[in-house]
Amino acid sequence: MKILVVDDEADVQPLFLQRFRREIREHEFEFDFALSGEDALNYLHDKHSEVVLILSDINMPGMSGLELLSRIRHEYDEPPPMVMMITAYGDEENHRQAMERGANDFLTKPLDFSLLKEKLKTLSI
């Protein structure tokens, strides 16, 4: 299962790779990364069929996560990829907006990786 992680902070990359070390080794998951909404759209342009899940931060300079979500929902509906939004703790407004725009699920920062793993397991079954 291929997962695209969108976050402007480059350090989330080693974090994910280490957290999912085993899963990656056992080819349960495969991760790709984008540093901005624009990056993510470019990536999807080529590989949207491979990607099953998009995990995106909301607060990014330039194109925000919400905008990315709208664009994804607008441009890719066959099959519609799963989109999980990462919101800052207690950010109700963004949560509501992401919901409206069709996010499948939410995670709050700081990321709880065990929770994320559980969510992913239910998805992959």
């Binding site: 902070e9 280490q18 990786f113």
Partner: peptide, 12 residues
């Protein structure tokens, strides 16, 4: 953001 990283990286 940095604090999240500190937390996450120590956990991992």
């Amino acid at each position: 953001n940095p604090l999240n990283f500190v937390n996450n990286f120590s956990e991992v």
